[in-house]
């Protein structure tokens, strides 16, 4: 059978692999190469070695974007996961209206990032106006919390769905056994439910971490980096370096930033997976 399939490789893997080569492998390799060059158009590419990378770490907007992104990722990952888990706990109690609530909470996921950003920009600016606070485009603090609220609104429903699936898989016998042994509701949560849904926690923290770190659309539409690039996150900073800054050196630096960004994302993903996987248990 294996031999028969192998003979048909042109039909089975060639289309995907050709597209994969065009859409991913080649741009990726080329991107790494270009990060070592100075270029504005592709006609004139000049090899400059690692000097782009040195300039990346001298660029204050990049460093600021890095800390802003790191802080945002930390806050939004915690907020989203804690709230999503709490709502999932409430929705697995078999209360009235569970299905309606689940439907409502998940809904924002279907709306695209650009549209979400504008919806929340109008809403938050309206609120800030009433409370006599500076509007989103004028204050980085407000912009930060605006992004957290927006991400929460969008992602809590998604993570909640995953947590519900996880919680429903916890065997009732296990919980009952714990209760007979005299465990309080808190003990059951801490010693039975959370260890048992650790795989879900791994996935949800992985997703929220990478989604937040790579956030682009929402950032572009909610604050656009205002005021003065203060709410610019890494992805937007790279885009801005590439397409909005004039000067022959910036495209190369932008590509070098992208490589740095990629390395950070991979490192975070690996560390996170290793950390939470080590806490998973077998029932």
């Amino acid at each position: 059978m294996e031999k028969a399939i192998k003979k048909y490789w042109i039909i089975f893997i060639l289309p995907t692999m050709a597209a994969f080569l065009i859409g991913f492998v080649w741009p990726f390799i080329w991107g790494i190469y270009l990060s070592l060059n100075k270029f504005q158009t592709l006609k004139k590419v000049e090899f400059v070695g690692f000097s782009n990378y040195i300039k990346v770490f001298q660029d204050e907007t990049f460093l600021h974007a890095f800390w802003f992104t790191a802080l945002f990722t930390l806050v939004s990952t915690i907020v989203i996961n804690v709230l999503a888990f709490a709502v999932a706990m409430l929705l697995t109690r078999k209360i009235r209206g569970t299905n309606v609530f689940r439907t409502v909470f998940f809904m924002p996921n279907l709306i695209g990032g650009i549209v979400l950003g504008y919806i929340w920009q109008s809403l938050l600016n309206g609120l800030l106006y009433i409370w006599d606070k500076p509007l989103l485009a004028l204050s980085a603090t407000e912009g930060f919390w605006g992004l957290v609220i927006l991400m929460g609104w969008q992602q809590i429903g998604y993570m909640m769905i995953i947590y519900i699936a996880g919680l429903q898989n916890v065997s009732p016998d296990l919980i009952e056994a714990a209760q007979i042994d005299g465990a309080s509701a808190w003990d059951v949560l801490k010693h039975v439910k959370i260890p048992m849904v650790m795989p879900s926690i791994t996935i949800c923290t992985f997703l929220t971490l990478t989604n937040s770190f790579k956030l682009f659309d929402q950032n572009l539409s909610l604050t656009g980096g205002e005021p003065a690039k203060n709410t610019q996150m890494l992805a937007l900073n790279i885009y801005d370096t590439y397409y909005a800054r004039s000067g022959a050196q910036w495209k190369g630096i932008g590509q070098a930033k992208a490589v740095v960004f990629f390395v950070i994302v991979v490192a975070i993903s690996l560390i996170q997976l290793k950390f939470t996987r080590s806490k998973e248990v077998q029932a």
């Binding site: 893997i13 692999m17 994969f20 065009i22 859409g23 991913f24 492998v25 080649w26 741009p27 990726f28 080329w30 991107g31 270009l34 592709l42 990478t210 790579k214 682009f216 890494l234 992805a235 790279i238 885009y239 590439y242 495209k251 932008g254 590509q255 992208a258 490589v259 960004f261 990629f262 994302v265 991979v266 993903s269």
Partner: peptide, 25 residues
């Protein structure tokens, strides 16, 4: 190789390839 390349590609942020991809396209 195909399998691991696919897994790898899921982690790569779009900004990494955005310029070269658009030129290739």
């Amino acid at each position: 190789c195909i399998y691991y390349l696919c897994v790898f590609s899921m982690v790569v942020p779009f900004q990494m390839v955005m310029f070269t991809l658009s030129k290739t396209a």
